[in-house]
Amino acid sequence: MKQNKKHTAKPIEAIVHGVFLVAGLITVGCVLLITVYLIISGLPAIKEIGLIPFLFGKVWASTAKTTEPSFGILPFILTSVYGTCGAIVLGVPVGFMASVYIAKLAPKKLKAVMQSAVSLLAGIPSVVYGLVGMLVLVPGIRKLFNVPDGASLLAAIVVLAIMILPSIIKVSVTALEAVPKEYEDASLALGATEVETHFKVSVPAARSGIAAAVVLGVGRAIGEAMAVMMVSGNAANMPGLFESVRFLTTAVASEMSYSGGLQRQALFSIALVLFVFIMLINAALNFFLKRDKEA
C-alpha cells in the first residue's frame, strides 16, 4: 500500500482498489463465518435431542449422573423473554420521558450534561453493573421482599432496565430532534401548549425512530450476559420473579468452561437459538429504521 510512484501507474490503482474491496468484504465474511459456525456447531445437538424436546423441554439437567441427562431449554427461553419484557416495561417509560425532555425542553447546558451522563452510562462495563447489582440490589431485594435469596429474575430485570436506558435515550433523542420544526410551529400556532405539542405532534412524527430505540433496547437486553450472570442466581428454574433463574446467555457462559460431549454441543445449540432471536430483532430494527428514513 505504500507505493510512491510519481505518475499513477494503472496496476497500482488496481491493486489498491482490490485491497479496499477486500477490506469492505471482510464484514460480510465475518457475518457468514459467525452464521456458518453457529449453525454447524449448533445443529448436531438439536438433531440428537430433537427440536421439540430441546425447545420445549422444561428440565435442564445437563450433568445428571444418576438419571439420563435432560436438555430442555424452555426455562432459559422464557427467562430471557420475561427478563427482556420486564426490562422494557421498567426502562422504556423512564427512557422515553427523559428523551422527550432532553430533546425538546432541556436548557442547552443541562442537555449537554445529560447527554454526557447517558454516554457514560453506556460506557460503564457490564461487569461493573453486575458487581454493584450483586452487592446493592441483591441484598436490597432480599430485605425488601423478605425472600431467602435476592439473586433473582427481579434483580436481573432492574439491572437490564438500567443497561438499556442509554440505547433507548440516544436513538429516541436523535429521532425527536429530526422532527421538522414546521410541524411544531404549526401546532403551537394552533394554540397547543409546548408539552402538548411535544407529545401529540413530535412524538408521533418520530414514532419509527422511537420504535427502533425500543427494539435496540430489546436486543441489548436479550444479549447481555455478564451482568445478568452476576445477579440472577443462575439455577435452571422456570422463571419466577423471585426465583433464581438462568438466561439463554448465561446458560452458555456458565457451563462452557467445564462442558464436554453432548452437553457442550447443546450449549452451542442454545447459542444458535439466541442468534436466531437476535437476527429477528435485527430485522425488526432495520424495518423501523428504514421506515424512519422514508418518512
Partner: peptide
C-alpha cells in the same frame, strides 16, 4: 456490506466469544 456491519454491531458479545 452495510447490512453486514449493522448485523455485526447487534450480535451480543457472548456469541462473539463462542
Amino acid at each position: 456490506i452495510e447490512y453486514a456491519a449493522e448485523t455485526l454491531s447487534g450480535i451480543p458479545s457472548i456469541i462473539y466469544g463462542l
